[in-house]
């Protein structure tokens, strides 16, 4: 019994270590003063006001949403199509395709960033929004493929046969039977792709144009270049946005989507 108690205490301690730093930002963001201490000298919403009236931050938020939205769309479509092909077709070199798909996930971001930086400079894609979306899609799309493949693994091929035996042509069978059943997987992959792009920093640092600040890049600049306490308010809002994505992902997982 003491062993279990010790285990529980150790786990609780580690969980505290995981959560406390993130939660500590919340009161700091509500501080009335410039100096960040706990508890704050006074409470105010001044940093939130500063954040919401700052064109820099608003532009960064807009850029992040545009890039993550476009990435999600592109990765969602390409990833879902590819997962369908990989699942239903007997492709030669399936293993090689899956390995190529996993490569961007295990390759250090800085290496991918360096490679794309050189390639985009030569191809004239450096500093373009399109190039940035392509790069984000490369690192997000594996999650879509994985999630859709996972939901297809639970798909009973007899259902397709049943649909056809009941008079459904292949296109109708796909639309009425396959698509609704893998929808949670597609959505889960899309949520993960959105979060990946929304969080992405290193590729953005090297591939985005000088004016194309996303939220992570703006936070980095605000922490590293000129300390700006507004960053705490931004971090809290970004944290809340991540929690929305987490909720969406968990809800989808309970509906049979999700990764793992």
């Amino acid at each position: 019994m003491t062993a279990r108690l010790l285990l529980g205490l150790a786990a609780a301690g580690v969980l505290l270590f995981l959560l406390a730093p993130i939660l500590a930002i919340l009161p700091l963001s509500l501080s009335a003063g410039e100096i960040l201490r706990l508890p704050p000298e006074g409470w105010s919403l001044r940093w939130y006001a500063a954040l919401l009236s700052s064109e820099r931050w608003l532009l960064a938020a807009r850029n992040s949403l545009v890039v993550a939205g476009a990435t999600t769309l592109l990765a969602g479509v390409l990833g879902t199509l590819a997962a369908l092909g990989l699942h239903f077709g007997r492709l030669p070199g399936r293993g090689a395709i899956l390995a190529l798909l996993a490569a961007p996930v295990v390759t250090p971001s800085i290496v991918t960033a360096a490679a794309l930086f050189l390639a985009y400079s030569a191809a004239g894609l450096a500093g373009t929004l399109f190039g940035l979306v392509l790069a984000h899609t490369v690192i997000s799309v594996p999650f879509v493929v994985l999630a859709v493949l996972a939901s297809l693994r639970g798909f009973d091929p007899a259902l397709l046969r049943a649909a056809e035996s009941l008079g459904a042509p292949p296109a109708a069978a796909f639309r009425r039977v396959v698509l609704p059943l893998i929808a949670p997987g597609v959505a889960a992959g899309a949520v993960f792709a959105f979060a990946t792009s929304f969080d992405e920093f290193i590729l953005t640092l090297f591939l985005a144009g000088p004016g194309q600040f996303t939220l992570p890049r703006q936070i980095y600049a605000a922490v590293r270049d000129v300390w700006d306490p507004t960053v705490c308010a931004a971090a809290v809002l970004l944290f809340l946005a991540s929690m929305l994505l987490l909720l969406a992902s968990e809800a989808l997982r309970r509906r049979g989507g999700g990764i793992g």
């Binding site: 007899a158 046969r161 049943a162 056809e164 035996s165 008079g167 292949p170 069978a173």
Partner: peptide, 13 residues
Amino acid sequence: PPHRRGLGVVFQN
């Protein structure tokens, strides 16, 4: 193709 054969099929599962 199967969808034009007009047969009723009861599947194993």
